[in-house]
Each structure stands twice: as structure tokens, then as C-alpha cells.
Design a protein around this nucleic acid. Sequence first.
DNA 1: TCCCCTATTGGTACTTTCTT
DNA 2: AAGAAAGTACCAATAGGGGA
Length: 544
Amino acid sequence: MRQSTAAASKLKSNDQQLSCVTNRIVAWYQGSPKKTANSKIVRSNGIDRSKDESELPASSRWRKISTGKWGPWQRTELTNPRTRSALTQKSRQIHLPRGGTVTIYPGLLSKTQRATLSQELLSSNLFRQYEIQGMPEPRVHFLLHEQATDEPEAPQPGYRYGSVRMKACPLRGLPKLCRLSKIVGKRAGVESWNIGVNPVFYRDGKDRIGAHADDDQGESCILSVIVASPIPLRRLLIQPKPTKIVDRTVLGTKQKGNKRLKLKTGNGDIVDDGVDEQHELRLGPGDAYCMDGEMQEHYVHSLPPDEHSKGSVEGRRIIVVFRSGTQKVFKKDSGKPCNLAALEPRPDLCFTFGNEIKDLREGDIYGGRQLRAMNAHRSTQRSVSGNKVMGCDAITVSRDREDDTFVRFSFAAETRVGGGSMLTSLQKGYPVRVFRTSALHNKYKAVAKKSGPKSKSNVYRYDGLYHIESAVEELGDKVNDVSLGLSNMINRKSEIIFRLCRSSENSVSSMRLLRRIVIERMTHSKVTSNNDLRKNCPKKIIVN
DNA sequence: TCCCCTATTGGTACTTTCTT
DNA sequence: AAGAAAGTACCAATAGGGGA
């Protein structure tokens, strides 16, 4: 009884909180954009953007790949659509050089419509957080569909890209958006948004979307309506799609990688016109833009981060994306529902040096996600966590080095992949958290707990704090000691070999920890007491 | 105009996860 | 089994501003 009352009051307070958040956003949104009139944004390329904002702001620039220099941003020519009707009278088009069209519909929504729609979306409680490339996406969103039903377990129409699987909720649950969907469908000449209606919430200027094409489900029409936007406006960046087959050396440039832009001709040959292009669109609240299927073949688009509105509620941006293409059905949704905190701007990550991290215990096994959540190792895709200024707080060891004795080992890193931060830690005498991973082949390889979920991903064992003893730069035959403040002299591409030694600051001695690791590997259970250690420990430690 | 300092940006490497 | 990725953030190179 008591419990249910508590639950009820909790629900109520959640509701109140939600309406509080919603009201605040709506209030902010309805407020006049005071900043516009006076703020002057002069970009490094010398263009004064504030003049553009009252009109349709589209600009483009080009560069020759051979020279690498970008030309100035210039106003993009906007043409009237070929088909004129009452519905498209105000619209304008950009015809992209490599193929495809963007149609802009200025002022599609009134201020009142925007406010009520914002409220409907934010109070729907439907936003979800999805993960991609091992990280939460820097935005939250959800999918609606006119054919979706209320049964949560039943398969529903959906949308999938990368590892994100979105299962739609019924569109009729949000009546205002449902109405809008029909209006914009007419305007764009689309009978049904058969992939779905996708409201997206960028919580602040740090939230963003990387370069991508909407081409995973045969999209033929992608229409986005901007419901709310920070002022100054954020830019939508459009660039040619990178191709897969690339050899820069053949083409006489030094750079490696697959970024060079090439085009496919009609007969399948790959040609290269030697030119990069970029296009920017700065559309405001109430405006809409529509990308066609052909554009998705040749271009990617992105919403780059905006330092201006980072960490601030004023940086909120809400858009609704309507997609038509190939309808698919999904049984599962890969996202998690957002609580109220998840709708606030995400806080910056902070550094923690040393052992004082809650739930981090020497010898224990963790997943990569756990490490990031604990702030014990912050980087998904590099083994060194840290930066050149602050130093390195943690590393993961996943490459075998013959000299690893557990107490001491060496670790190689170029300055560009974290060697710089390790040099800082060496100079400051900071301890580094060391995690050995299951990717190792030597006897100190981390081994997943038997009881844990079956997964192909690596696991990480916390082996305690280590101090960096020395650093040498290897230059062919020469070896250069860089332990003392010479980091600026180092060739960024040469490897620096660091020697690390397990620190006496650790709560557990090296030998005791090593014994525990051995026993836990043998018994697949946790060693919790000294008694366990004495009882189970073999006389001679042999690890394999 | 040159120099020096700071801010911005473009290029890049990185791992896990998932698909083909 | 191979390969690509709707991401992250480091860091060098570059641009821009201010002072001499």
C-alpha cells in the first residue's frame, strides 16, 4: 500500500517535472530571438552571416583537390521549381552539380504551430536514445507510422541504419503531427510517409549528426521540418559522398585514406573531377527542406556541432523528418526510453586520475561500455584516454609485448594517438589506470566471466595504477630519450615506447592481485576474502 | 608589414558492432 | 570472414587579431 502511494506520488512529480521542462522549452521557444539583431557571426572565411539570416541562406564553396585550398563561400543560386502550384509557390530549389535536388519551403509553420508541435513532441514521452559505433548517438529521436499499432510486442513498420533499429509507434497518438504529416505529404507530392515520421531532438549545440546519406531503405523523398532552432541558426552541411576505391598515391597526392572524392560515370567507370564542393543551408524555425533520392546517391549531409550553443538549453533544435521509400517491418527496437535527465544537454566528461572510481576494483572484469559509464576510460576507439594538456588517465593494453611481466611492460604509441598525453603524465608523475584486454594472446589476457552474457566484444580487466618510468622515440636505428620535456620536438609519426611499472599506490600488491586473477580464471568465480586466496592459490603460478 | 599568440578547422586513427 | 560505420576527439595547419 505504502509502496503504491509512493509510486503514485513519484509519477505525479515526474509529470510535474515534465510539464516544467516542456513549459520552459516552449517559453524559450516563443520568446523573441533577441540575439539575432545584434549578433554578428563572422566566420574564418570572412563572410558576415548575420546579413543572410533574414533571407534564404544557402551558400556553397569549391576547391581543387590538387591545390587543397577552399574558395570563398558564395551565395547559392536558388531556382523556382519547374512545377508551379499553389502548394509550391514559395518554394525554391538547389540543383546540386553531381545530381539531386534540395527543395526549400520557407515559413511552412507559424509561430503558434511550432509552439504547439514542440509541446506535443516533448510531452509525448517517446524520445529514445540509440547507440551507434559503441556510443550513444549525440541526439535523441523516435519513429511514428500511420500503420503502427498500439501493441508493443507486435512487429511494426520501422527504420534501420547501422546498428540502430527503430520500431514505430502509432502516428495518430500525436494528432498535431499527424495533421502536419498530411499537409507536407501533399506539398511534396508524397502519398504516404511509408518509412515513417521521425522527430529528432538535438539537446544543445554539442548534439549533432555526422555525414551520412539517407539511403538505407531506398529513400526517394526525405522532408525535414524545423520545429525549433537556436539563433544563430545551425548549418546543414552537404558534401559529395566519399567513394570506396581510392589510391591517392597514384593520383600524386601524399594523403592516404579513402576520403578522396570520385564519381561513377554511367558505364560504371570511376572518374575524378578533382573538385570538392560544400554547400550550407541555414534554415530557421518553421522552414522545411526536402532532399530527393538522387541526392542521396551523390551526397552526404550532416549537422556539425555548434560551439555557440554548447551546453545551453537555448541550443535546442527540434526537427521532424518525413521519409518515403521501402517500407520494412521490425520486431525489436534497439533504443532505450529517455528519462527527463536525458532530455537536458549532456554534461561534459571530466578526468579522474588514480584509483578513486566508484565500483572500480583491481582484478575485476568490465565491458567497454561500463568503463565509459564509470569514466574509468573515456575513449571508445583508442587505447589511450586523455589529452596532451591534462595527461593520460587510462590506457587499455590490447597488443602483445614480449616484455610484459605484469609488474612492468612497455607500450608503444605515436603522439597522434595519445603518446602526447602519456608524455604529459610522465612529466607530471601522474598514475595511469591500466586495463588488459581479452584481445591479448599472452598469459595476462583478460578472460570474460563464465556467467556473463555471451558476446563477441572484448572485455577489460583493471590491473591497477601504473607509473610511466621512461619514454624513448624510435627513429630507424636511432633511439631518442624523450622523457624530459621534448614533446614538441617529436615527429608525430614516430612511435614512442613507454615503460610502465605497477605503482605502489595500489590497494592490492602486484603478487596478490596476480594470484587472484589466476584463481578467478581457474574457478570462474569471484575471490572475495584472504581465506579464499590462501585456500585456492596454487603453490606455483602458471598462467596460460 | 611582420611577428606572435589564439581560435578554428580539416584530416585522421581508433574499436566495437553489425551486416553481407 | 571481411568490411563498413548517422562517432569521437586529438592535433597540425591555417586563419585572424593585435601590437610593435
